[in-house]
Structure formats: C-alpha cells, structure tokens
Simulated assay, not measured.
Amino acid sequence: MSERNPGFSTRAIHAGQEPDALTGAVVPPIHQVSTYKQDGVGGLRGGYEYSRSANPTRTALEECLAALEGGSRGFAFASGLAAEDTLLRAVTTPGSHAVIPNDAYGGTYRLFAKVTHPWGLDYSPTDLGDLDAVRAAIRPETSVVWIETPTNPLLSIADVAAIAEPGARRGRGRRR
C-alpha cells in the first residue's frame, strides 16, 4: 500500500492485495493448486512449494490480518485447533502451566488433555467467571491463561480485562 498511515478501512480493503504483475488484477485470485514448480531441490519459486504450507491467497490474507492488527506478521491456519496448538507451543514449554476454562470448547479441552498434557504442559480447568478462582489457579510456572468468551456450548462470559490484570501483574518481569 502506498499510503503511509492508512486507516482501518483502507487496510482492510487493500493490505496484502498488490496488483498482479502479470495481469494487473487488483484482487488476488484464489490459488487452489496443490504443488508449485520448484527451481531445484529446496529452490522455492516465490516462496511456495505446496499449497498447504503456503500459497499466494493465504499470504494475502496473512498480510491483511497483520496490517489490521498493527503487527509485523499474520498467520492463517486450516483450523482453529491448528492455530491453538501452534500458539500453545510458541508460548509454553514442557513443565509450564496453563489455566483454562472449566467449560472450554471440547476440541480445546481435548487438545490440552490429550496432546499438550502428555507433551508436558500442565493445566487447571477453572471457573473464569470467578476472579478469585483464576488468581488461585495461577502458579509461578503459569505461561498462559486461556480465555474463551462466550464459551461453547454453555455461553459463559469471562471478563477479559479483569482476568488479564492478575495475569499481567503476576507475569511482570518474568522471562521464559
């Protein structure tokens, strides 16, 4: 985008959507191929090898999301659970701890119980509507307080700002 500090609406419409050099199309096409021609072993052409690892359509979406959020990079995943797993492995390590909703989405709960827990991430299901319970569940090794609001299927509501405060206060000055 040529504008130096474009507004949200401009970023939402234009970020990640540079005109196609070959055709001049101003909206990126949907790339549905499964593999891309490579210039030798490990010689990716334009950064693409297989559409599940990256493709121009996803790159455009990720650039747009990063621009909208004011980030340097955005990531798109094929499923919410793939995003959750990636995030958890980025912010936790074996031996660390997470506080999760006691009525978390079933897929999220199974991710903690059957994937990350055997990997070494301990977790405590907690009523996120009870701030005292959240404070009590936070340990020195807590790396993340996982918030889902409203929850699925019970539609419990968590006060994100109130939960973030004890987590932020507890985590100040900590280094992983």
Results as ranks from 00 to 15, higher is better:
Thr108Leu: 13
Leu121Ile: 03
Pro56Tyr: 02
Phe77Thr: 02
Ser156Arg: 15
Thr86Arg: 02
Pro118Thr: 00
Arg73Pro: 03
Leu121Tyr: 02
Val160Leu: 12
Gly129Leu: 03
Ile157Glu: 13
Leu81Pro: 02
Thr149Lys: 07
Ser51Leu: 01
Thr151Ile: 09
Tyr50Thr: 08
Asn55Met: 03
Asp103Asn: 15
Arg45Gln: 13
Ala67Cys: 04
Asp39Asn: 14
Arg135Leu: 03
Gly46Pro: 05
Arg58Val: 03
Ala76Thr: 10
Glu148Ile: 12
Thr93Gly: 13
Gly24Trp: 09
Glu63Gln: 14
Leu22Phe: 15
Pro140Asn: 09
Leu65Phe: 14
Gln17Pro: 03
Pro19Val: 10
Ser72Pro: 05
Thr23Phe: 11
Gly129Cys: 11
His117Ser: 10
Asn102Gln: 07
Thr126Trp: 08
Pro101Val: 04
Gly47Val: 02
His97Glu: 00
Ala90Asn: 05
Leu154Lys: 03
Arg139Ile: 01
Pro101Glu: 01
Phe77Leu: 04
Glu18Gln: 14
Thr116Cys: 07
Pro101Met: 06
Val99Asp: 01
Ser124Cys: 05
Gly74Arg: 02
Ala54Glu: 11
Gly47Glu: 00
Thr92Pro: 03
Leu155Asp: 11
Gly74Val: 00
Gly70Val: 07
Pro118Ala: 01
Asp85Val: 08
Ala137His: 00
Gly24Met: 11
Ser156Ala: 10
Ala60Asp: 00
Pro29Glu: 12
Gly129Arg: 15
Leu128Phe: 14
Trp119Cys: 01
Ser53Asp: 09
Ser96Gln: 15
Leu88Cys: 08
Asp130Lys: 14
Ala82Ile: 06
Lys114Ser: 08
Pro28Ser: 05
Asp132Ser: 12
Ala90Gln: 12
Leu68Asn: 08
Tyr50Arg: 13
Ser51Gln: 01
Trp146Gln: 04
Thr93Tyr: 13
Arg110Tyr: 13
Val144Asp: 01
Gln32Val: 10
Pro56Lys: 02
Gln38Asp: 10
Leu121His: 01
His97Gly: 01
Gly43Pro: 00
Val144Leu: 12
Leu88Tyr: 14
Glu62Arg: 03
Thr108Lys: 07
Ile100Cys: 02
Leu111Pro: 04
Pro94Ser: 09
Thr116His: 13
Pro29His: 12
Thr57Pro: 00
Trp146His: 11
Thr35Ser: 13
Asp127Pro: 04
Arg73Asp: 14
Lys114Gln: 09
Val27Tyr: 14
Asp103Glu: 09
Phe112Leu: 15
Gly80Tyr: 10
Asp39Pro: 04
Glu62Pro: 08
Thr151Gln: 14
Gly40Thr: 01
Phe77Asn: 13
Asp20Gln: 09
His31Thr: 08
Asp103Lys: 05
Asp127Cys: 07
Pro125Trp: 07
Val144Thr: 11
Ser96Ile: 01
Arg73Trp: 07
Gly95Glu: 06
Leu44Ser: 07
Val115Ser: 09
Asp39Lys: 14
Asp85Gly: 09
Gly16Gln: 03
Asp132Arg: 06
Glu84Ile: 11
Gly80Arg: 10
Ser96Lys: 14
Asp103Pro: 06
Tyr105Gln: 08
Ala60Trp: 00
Arg139Tyr: 01
Gln32Tyr: 06
Thr116Tyr: 15
Asp39Leu: 08
Val41Glu: 10
Asp122Thr: 09
Pro101Ser: 09
Glu84Pro: 04
Gly16Cys: 08
Gly120Ser: 11
